[in-house]
Design a protein around this nucleic acid. Structure first.
Lengths: 153, 153
DNA sequence: GCTGAAATGTTCGCTTA
DNA sequence: TAAGCGAACATTTCAGC
């Protein structure tokens, strides 16, 4: 009930590459009829293997070409400050990814903005306003070499 | 022909949150009929604003709980080595993201695997086999605080 | 940008192995 | 328990206004 067989894996492989494949298409690819594929997909959704379906936009076309990586260290490492930081980050729409890390740096953030100026404003008026931030180190992406949301099977 | 009005932006906002919203749903949300919404979506796809539609899977449920950040510096910075590295990375399915960075570190990679042992194997038998790698520094994600593919408007 | 109708896809109860 | 069939319903797609 909670583990995936080869057919489930094949379905997930297809859907994480292209969610617009119809049940019919997938059934054809797997030599099955529509019903079992339909039921498996519903099950994978219900059990939480599939979280959601999204449209992936083109960063450059929509005018947000600047990506920065920002490494943040906290001044004091107590629970309340950490929780506060985590909360604040959720509301900052410029932040696409944020990870609590092992090692010297506490958090690694991936930030997407229109321009370097906007990044400056983001750091100055939003990020550095969060309480208890110690060191804050920004580097910029020159080129996105690879970016996928696919997991391999 | 290449710029977005407010309606386009609203459509993109909806679709990057939930690609399963039907044309009908979106039309209702925007107080429009189906046709204009339908035509705009097709146009946004054709013009490349929307790259693709994908299913987002649950990292933990599918048994791939370990995420590592690996920072790579090249030994020599000539074009051929860089291009080789970029090429090799495309084929490594454990690598979800790879950025060519400004600054001391040349590349930042996000890697997703089943276990620390698998990460070890990845570094030893795949990553460090690539020619001309100098420094290689790994840190691990303790907690994914935020991860979205949405761009804000 | 709207209307409406044909084509396509989804959903689900029932049947079969 | 998992797969298949088929009918009812929903959505997509597109020509014509």
């Amino acid at each position: 009930m909670d583990s995936l067989d080869e057919i489930d894996k094949s379905i997930l492989k297809i859907l994480q590459r292209d969610a617009k494949q119809t049940t019919k298409d997938i059934a054809a690819a797997l030599n099955l009829t529509i019903s079992p594929v339909y039921e498996r997909i519903r099950k994978l959704e219900a059990q939480g293997f599939i979280n959601k379906y999204v449209a992936i936009l083109d960063q450059k076309k929509i005018g947000r070409p600047v990506t920065a990586i920002c490494q943040v260290s906290m001044r004091y490492h107590n629970e309340a400050f950490i929780e506060n930081f985590v909360n604040e980050i959720q509301h900052l729409e410029e932040v696409q990814e944020c990870y609590h890390m092992a090692g010297q740096v506490d958090f690694l953030l991936k930030i997407n903005v229109k321009s370097l100026e906007e990044y400056h404003d983001f750091v100055r008026y939003k990020l550095s306003k969060i309480d208890n931030i110690g060191v804050l180190n920004s580097t910029f992406v020159l080129k996105e070499v690879k970016h996928t949301s696919e997991f391999f099977f």
